[in-house]
Amino acid sequence: MTENHHFLVQQVGKGDKQALAALYRAYERPVYKFIVSRLNDPHEAADILHEVFMDIWRVAASFEGRSQVRTWIFGIAYRKVIDAHRKRSRVTVTDEVPETGDVAEAADAGYAAKQEAEHLRFCMGTLSDDHRSAISLAFYEDMTCAEIAEIAGVPEGTIKSRLHHAKKLLLHCLSGRIRGRAVA
């Protein structure tokens, strides 16, 4: 699979549009999901997805194969979303773990129930882009720490730290929402 995608990128670099279409079909869904998870705007996400594949078309000839095709493509998407955030001048919503809240409570509070999807969406939306990216790549794509670090262009320790904080924030947020619903 990886070798096949590498071959496709090489073909795209030679101007093969069918190879580009094949790459699009292989990566459209996961890359789009990743972008949406960071923007919460499906329409803007569709435009950014388009830009990602236009970039692939334009720069595929310079792909040297030192990274996996997947991390290369996600890296392009990662930077595109950062650009989009800069254009929006979007502020970071949450970066610090609140002092209150009990992780164990969140874990035990019936979170496993299926109806919590909406809570999860909400709480993901409260995370900073760095945190959300790390969670998305780890849980949507099941990427290794090294892969996520390569995409984000930071050391692995930074990714572990981001995931750790994102986990605390998510569980804290979920705990609060579940508690609120129970009270209501």
């Binding site: 459209e28 869904r29 789009y32 999901k33 949406v36 499906p42 569709a46 997805l49 388009h50 992780v103 164990a104 969140a106 874990a107 035990d108 979170y111 496993a112 919590e116 999807a117 999860l120 998305s136 780890a138 849980f139 949507y140 986990k167 998510l170 569980l171 979920l174």
Partner: peptide
């Protein structure tokens, strides 16, 4: 262990999420 279980639930929830792509 409780955190692990919670994260596993979150991951399962995320992966099960249906999404409509530009296609």
């Amino acid at each position: 262990a409780a955190e692990r279980d919670a994260l596993a639930t979150i991951r399962a929830e995320m992966q099960a999420e249906e999404i409509r792509t530009p296609g």
